[in-house]
């Protein structure tokens, strides 16, 4: 079997763009999370909605900061 070069799952050149967009989306969702936390009263706050918003925000922030690290030369 001929050796096959291994490449990264995402092309290197995309890292800066990806990191900017994912972090932007992540921060927007984070903002909506905190707005919801601050404005809705304690009684009719839905835990599921909080958890889902938090999860979505953390996925975007997580990948965004990973790509930020990669784009800035910290290859994890």
């Amino acid at each position: 079997m001929a050796p096959k070069p291994i490449t990264s799952p995402v092309p290197d050149a995309w890292y800066p763009t990806l990191s900017v967009f994912m972090l932007a989306i992540g921060l927007i969702v984070t903002a909506s999370f905190f707005i919801y936390e601050a404005t809705s009263s304690r009684r009719n706050r839905s835990l599921a909605k909080e958890l889902v918003t938090g999860a979505v925000a953390s996925v975007f922030l997580g990948f965004g900061s990973l790509f930020l690290l990669l784009a800035s030369g910290v290859y994890v």
């Binding site: 905190f34 958890l51 925000a57 953390s58 997580g62 990948f63």
Partner: peptide
């Protein structure tokens, strides 16, 4: 295995959100 690193970041952020939820509740 290479997705362990982003998963760690994601769970780190998620813990932060969970902490906020717990604090407000």
């Amino acid at each position: 295995s290479m997705f362990i690193e982003p998963l760690m970041l994601i769970s780190g952020y998620f813990l932060l959100f969970v902490a906020c939820i717990i604090y407000t509740h």
